[in-house]
């Protein structure tokens, strides 16, 4: 499988008045053709910025300070105008979190679907696209306005729009976060199924490691603008190596046994003012040593998984997390 997207040493900062906030800190990532990769992170991890950067969809005050993003042979950062539109239109598909704001509230669904097609479409083609997205009453949906649909139905429409032109890459940013729990699974399954049919790559951004690990080939865990662990999703989820990944799984409700105590990660996610010169997780890490506070960790390989830490997981196995709650 060849590389569809190559992200190299990407650093992105947001200009907020006088100061800058760094969201992505020298990230290198390759997305292969046909693979699904999940990017997991909390607030300030940089995952949304990274995802949106692929389509050059960042706000005005976001500055790409270094690095580049290449899709096939196109260098996204250098593209603009018609070229950029072409890339977004023909090669990329987006699914955002809130379907109600992703759809135009003033247009019927049928019209929005027709706009998504590459050339003039027939009503049948449009209806069949909606049906592919699991909307059985496609005629009814096509005649409706977005606000007349439920959250789940609207998101199905958004998904249909995203695959209309058979994109090479689908980027989904928390696609189920605003949907009810009972349909989250169905929507995710739908996305995977459509992706499989199209042979497209998919980037799934989420804060939910479990949900992502179940559906993606690879998982990347982001913290403080860097990818701290990336590898085969089974490995990352069942045998996490990076202290943050391990802590995240222990802290998340849902994985514990009855009566077992959740161990929160004390402290708060960092706000980076510069590209960090030491480990961004150090002040919350139960295993941190002096070197963690003074030197920027490099990425090394451990059992097929790439980990960004000064230490290897087996070195940390002996230590215990000291004081867990550092508020």
């Amino acid at each position: 499988m060849s590389e569809l997207v190559q992200i190299k040493d990407l650093t992105i900062a947001y200009q907020m008045g006088q100061a800058a906030i760094y969201a992505v800190d020298q990230v290198t990532l390759d997305i292969k053709q046909g693979e699904t990769i999940g990017i997991v992170g909390e607030s300030g991890s940089g995952k949304s910025t990274l995802g949106m950067a692929i389509g050059k969809l960042l706000s005005q005050n976001a500055v790409v300070e270094a690095g580049q993003i290449t899709i096939g042979s196109d260098q996204v950062q250098d593209c603009s105008g018609e070229e950029l539109r072409r890339i977004r239109r023909d090669r990329l598909g987006f699914v955002f979190q809130n379907p109600m704001t992703a759809l135009d509230p003033t247009m019927r669904i049928d019209k929005q679907v027709s706009l998504a097609f590459a050339r003039k479409s027939t009503p049948d083609e449009r209806l069949s696209l909606l049906r592919r997205s699991g909307l059985e009453n496609a005629e009814q949906v096509a005649k409706s306005y977005p606000h007349e649909l439920s959250g789940g139905m609207a998101q199905r429409v958004v998904i249909a729009l995203s695959i209309a032109r058979n994109p090479e890459l689908i980027i989904a940013d928390e696609p189920t976060a605003s949907l009810d729990a009972s349909i989250q699974d169905k929507i995710l399954d739908l996305m995977i199924q459509l992706r499989d049919e199209a042979g497209a790559s998919m980037v799934l951004l989420s804060h939910d490691l479990g949900m992502v690990a179940k559906r993606c080939d690879r998982v990347a865990v982001m913290y403080g603008g860097r990818i701290v662990e990336i590898g085969n999703s089974k490995s990352v989820f069942e045998d996490p190596k990076h202290p943050y990944t391990r802590a995240l799984i222990k802290a998340a409700a849902g994985n514990e046994k009855p009566g077992e105590r959740l161990e929160p990660i004390g402290g708060v996610p960092p706000v980076l003012r510069t590209s960090s010169t030491y480990c961004a997780f150090a002040d919350r890490c139960g295993f941190a040593k002096d070197i963690c506070f003074s030197k920027r960790p490099e990425t090394h390989s451990e059992e097929g998984v790439m980990v960004t830490c000064h230490f290897e997981a087996k070195q940390l196995a002996g230590d215990e997390i000291v004081d867990e709650v550092r508020a």
Partner: peptide, 10 residues
């Protein structure tokens, strides 16, 4: 009075 423009995504 509207300082929320251009906030970073998370």
């Amino acid at each position: 009075l509207e300082p929320l423009r251009g906030r970073p995504l998370t």
